[in-house]
Structure formats: C-alpha cells, structure tokens
Amino acid sequence: MEIGRRYARLYGMSSYQDGCGIEDLPAAGTNVEALKDALPHWGFVVESTKNPVQSQIEQDLQISAGKVTGDDVFLLYLAGHAFLDEDHEDIYFATRSTYYKRDYEQYCYSLAAALRALGKIGAKLKVLVLDSCFSGAATYLPGALSAGSARSSVAILASSMRTRPSFAVPGEPLSRYTGALVDCLGTFVRSATDPVSLSMLAEALLREMRDREGDQTPEHLIRGDGALPLLKRSTPPAPPWAHNVKAAPAEAGRSRLTAPAVLTGGGRKAGSSYSSFLRSSAARGPGGAQVVPNAERSSMLDATPGAAPERGPEPPPPTTRQRPRS
C-alpha cells in the first residue's frame, strides 16, 4: 500500500522547574536525540523538542493537523515523568510548565488531550509512542480507539503496563524502552529489511524487551491495518520540517529552539501565545543531556537526577491559582 510522507514529532521532558518536586530525567533528552538521528534514515521528517511547555505541544499538534494528509504516516513520541490519576483512567506528562507535582491535572499535559489531538490528524497511519511510567493506561482509554477512523489506522506503543513504572538505567544513555526501539531500528538496518510494517516493529520491540533484564512489560494496541509500512529506507535522509523556524541566533555549542509558529520580520503569527517566549533574547533550546552513573537503578517516575542540561527561560508563573502551601 502506498504511503505519502512520514512525519514524526518527538518530545523529551528531561528538565523541570526548580522546587516543583519533580526530579530531572536526563535519559528523556538523549532518547529524543537518538530517535532524531535514526528516524530520518527510515523516511521520516522529524521535529523534536526537549523540555517543551504544555502550550507548545498543543500548538505543534495543531500545525500537524493542518499539514499531514490522508496518505501520510504520523508518529508522536512522548518521554518523561508521568502521573496516574486516582481512577487509573488518565496519565499526565510533566512539562516545563508543570509548577507543582500535586497539581498535575492543571499543570501537566494529559494523555487524553494527546489522543484527542491525534484524532484530528488525518494520516493513514498514526503511531503514539510513550516512554513513561504507567504508559500502558493509553491502551485502555476510549480515545485510543477514537484517535483512528474508517480511513486510518492507529497504534499505541507503550513502554510499560498501566500500573507499572518504566525504567531509565543509570549509566546507560537511553531509557530501557527507547533503547530497545533504537536497537530494533538498527537490527532492521543490518538485516536489510525494507519496508518495515507496524506489526513487525511491535513484535520486534516485545522480543527485545523480553531479552532485557528488569521487570518492564510493554503494552501495545493496534487498531486497523498492522501491515501498513511504517518504516521505509530513505537515502538521503528525509529533510527537516518545512515550517521550522529558528529563534534568536544561538551561541556556539547550544542547540536552537524550533518554533511552533512562523515568525516573520520579528513579528508573530496571529494566535501564537508562545511567540512572546520565542522573541525573548534568552530563547534558547536545551543543551545535551548528561547521564551520571549511579549504583541504584531508577524509574522514569523516581529517577536519580544527573547533571541537569542547560535550561531555557522560565515560563511565567501561574496567575489563575495560588501556590499551594507545603
């Protein structure tokens, strides 16, 4: 079956607000870097952001909904700390706009919102890859099915069961699940397998995770045609997204922040609540994440903090709710 273009949006939350009660997670940043290097060789045009605020994710997915067509493949990747709600019906991803751990429903990006956004993207195949604690909850949400349609297939590849943590192993640059994903992509390269269907990748991931030590069992859900070619070798690698815009000139050694809205002549696209942040002289992307070895294993929920990456400017403090008392 013919596929148009392949698009991927990657988000890794590795650095959080000081005093918010959430520890940094360096592996989430290196996960994004590894996938950003690997996916273009399989036909994907990639947009990646480390340590986004919640509004940026929402605006990025709105842009994707207007750009992706019914013949395309769209992949959304989220990695970082996540919190399971009391009813075990939704999980919330902590972002740079998360101020207080106890108020995760207000300050985190919910999985239900991600599924609603995915449902508005009219791709032939939509894949949501989650690397966080409790990510298997995604396969039980009603939105997991409504994210697809009669003309599209949807898959959720979750790193762990809905009541279990996901692990980032100290001393290893990647988390356990994303490391398995990157290894699977490399195995397909070495075996000259091309194209690679959605079902082939899901089965290879399960086998790879079984071969790794530790108590972490992925949960996968495929609705629709699992034989669709998710990966197809691309030489040369696919180009970057056409609407990428770099913010203020970056200093040497620092990566640049890509904008979710098009900036022209120092102005801003109408309706972009994120543009004031981008116009700030301090608008810089995060630097490379660093892993500090530790004797104890750590989970994606309670990871031992390593050397924190460079941070961009702090988002403005909340105005609608008072700071909770400790």
Rank of each mutant, 00 (worst) to 15 (best):
V127K: 06
A307N: 05
A123G: 09
G288M: 13
L35N: 02
V68R: 08
P237L: 03
M1G: 11
D60F: 12
G171H: 00
Y7Q: 08
T139R: 01
R254E: 10
A79H: 09
A270M: 06
S234L: 14
V189G: 07
R256G: 10
W241V: 13
G143C: 01
P315N: 14
R6C: 04
S48V: 07
P240A: 06
F83N: 02
L128K: 01
I121H: 11
V45T: 13
A282P: 07
L221D: 03
Y107I: 00
P286I: 02
E296Q: 09
Y99P: 10
V73C: 13
S64G: 08
Y140M: 11
L141P: 00
D85C: 08
S276D: 13
S110M: 08
D211P: 01
D131T: 08
Y16G: 09
Y77D: 05
H220D: 00
S299W: 07
A138M: 00
L61N: 08
S153C: 07
E172W: 03
S14T: 03
D211L: 14
F167R: 07
I22G: 02
A8I: 10
D225M: 00
L78T: 05
P52S: 03
T69S: 14
L181I: 03
P170Q: 11
L181W: 05
D60T: 14
C133Q: 05
A34P: 02
K67W: 15
A144Y: 00
M161H: 12
E208M: 11
E47A: 04
E172N: 04
S160N: 08
Y11H: 04
S298W: 04
R9S: 11
G70W: 03
L115C: 03
A114R: 02
S160F: 12
S152Q: 10
T235V: 13
Y107P: 00
S280I: 01
Y107K: 01
A150S: 05
M300S: 06
P236D: 08
Q106E: 15
S14R: 00
E33G: 04
L145E: 13
L278R: 05
E58A: 10
C108W: 13
G143I: 06
S299V: 02
